[in-house]
């Protein structure tokens, strides 16, 4: 198993997932089926989460194959440009879907603006991630290059009309990296925001977790849960600043075992959220008034969530000292 394997394993999920999500969403639109709409939103959120490691492993895969025979640097860069654009659309679609899911708690449906925004962003995401997949496939699918075994040079690289149009919006990887790192003040600002996001997550999600675990039982659960949008805002800030920092200085991150353990913990938190919201546990605990005890299953989910958040923080702190632990292992 290496980065190239991992990247190939993960990179089909965003494409297929966003198509499945959009399909469910469109059907729910015409069938006026709110449950289906919510299901499509859950798919969008899950796919936004999986897009993170799909994007990150791409940098590792690039390191592995860039010097290989028959691999065109120009093709890799075109793919990276495309990913640098599509990835943000996937994340924004996921964030909008999360907002819609939050809104649909009280009213059983997301607001009109939210549905419109998800429609626009999910459509654009499907187009952009399709292009990312296509440009990625061009890097190393020789059977697809009509007998032309020689690597393509920048000048001979062919894009269709759609691809050429989209390419105008795709950031140049070097310029993006430069934009993230040209000023130490911008970098410090991103890192400070990453910390404020962390504080919001621990303050709100952590507090909810320890209440469910049985501490601070004087607090009713439902109002505590209403603090959660602040924690989700913190998560949004941290995914955005984290991805920007990574794309700015990928070499600082891709060879650090701690980074991948951090991402693994983040993915497991996605599983944790599914266990909390989609198995009826949330329905049980949201009715808990002051002094009432949560069922054991809820405590277990809350405790594992809290553990995973601290794993994320711990691994985040050890990225730097472990920065080259994976050098030469692939």
């Amino acid at each position: 198993m290496n980065y190239a394997h991992l990247h190939l394993l993960l990179n089909h999920f965003p494409i297929i997932g966003s198509i499945v999500g959009l399909g469910l969403f469109l059907v729910s639109f015409f069938g006026k089926n709110q449950d289906l709409k919510r299901a499509s939103y859950i798919v969008f959120v899950g796919i936004a989460l999986i897009t993170i490691p799909a994007f990150l492993t791409g940098f590792g895969a690039q390191q592995m194959i860039k010097d290989g025979a028959g691999v065109s640097d120009a093709l890799i860069r075109r793919h990276e440009s495309s990913a640098l654009l599509s990835m943000w659309f996937m994340e924004v679609t996921g964030a909008l879907a999360l907002i819609g899911l939050w809104q649909s708690q009280a009213t059983a449906r997301p607001s009109r603006w939210n549905v419109t925004a998800v429609l626009i962003f999910s459509l654009l995401s499907v187009v952009l991630i399709g292009r990312t997949g296509n440009t990625g496939g061009d890097i190393r699918h020789p059977e697809d290059q009509t007998g032309n075994a020689a690597p393509m040079a920048e000048g001979t690289m062919k894009d269709g009309a759609v691809g050429a149009f989209l390419h105008n919006f795709e950031p140049d990887p070097d310029k993006f990296s430069e934009a993230m790192t040209f000023s130490k003040w911008w970098w410090t600002f991103m890192m400070a925001m990453h910390f404020l996001g962390l504080i919001l997550i621990v303050g709100t999600v952590g507090l909810l977790d320890i209440r469910i675990m049985g501490f601070l039982k004087q607090l009713p659960v439902a109002p505590l849960h209403r603090l959660l949008p602040w924690g989700l805002a913190g998560l949004g800030i941290n995914i955005a600043t984290g991805l920007m920092a990574f794309a700015g200085r990928p070499d600082n991150y891709i060879f650090s075992a701690a980074l991948w353990l951090k991402i693994l913990a983040l993915m497991l938190l996605g599983v944790n959220a599914v266990a909390f919201y989609l198995t009826g546990i949330f329905g049980q605990v949201k009715r808990l008034e002051a002094g009432e005890d949560a069922p054991f299953s809820a405590k277990l989910v809350a405790a594992s969530g809290l553990f995973l958040w601290f794993a994320v923080i711990t691994m985040g702190r050890y990225i730097q000292p472990l920065t080259d632990t994976l050098l030469g292992t692939n």
Binding site: I201, G206, L219, P220, R226
Partner: peptide
């Protein structure tokens, strides 16, 4: 830091009107 600022921020936000049904 996450404990002291996180817990304090929750109390601050509650006083400033967030989750106003939280005792």
């Amino acid at each position: 830091m996450s404990l002291v600022v996180g817990a304090n921020a929750v109390v601050d936000l509650r006083i400033l009107g967030v989750a106003s049904d939280l005792p």
